[in-house]
């Protein structure tokens, strides 16, 4: 049991690191396309690790199944949404940042 606790703590810590660093990236990166990478870190890696960490703490299978469904859902919809956003932004002509240009 103590092993599970430790493993869960490690997963949660890693997930926490990922979501915060992704959020900082979202704020700090220079343009839309680079920011998509940052949200990828938070939404897939961070959220996934936190949900896995919670999964190791569940005592009932009902909660576990729901966590897995949420995880599956986020893993499928997150990248789809960002893919669409990038595609649509490119089509609408959202400019790409080059070195030396101002941040936008």
């Amino acid at each position: 049991m103590i092993l599970l606790e430790i493993l869960s703590a490690v997963l949660l810590a890693a997930g926490t690191l990922f979501i915060v660093s992704g959020a900082v990236g979202l704020l700090r990166f220079p343009d839309f396309y680079t920011r998509i990478h940052a949200t990828g870190i938070t939404d897939s890696a961070g959220a996934g690790l936190i949900l896995l960490g919670l999964l190791l703490r569940t005592t009932t299978w009902e909660a576990g199944v729901r966590l897995l469904i949420i995880l599956l859902f986020l893993v499928v919809t997150g990248p789809t949404a960002t893919h669409l956003l990038a595609h649509a932004a490119r089509r609408d002509g959202v400019p790409v940042w080059r070195k030396g240009h101002p941040r936008r």
Binding site: A23, L26, A81
Partner: peptide
Amino acid sequence: LAINMFGT
């Protein structure tokens, strides 16, 4: 993008 992330 930000709102999508907020939702997650």
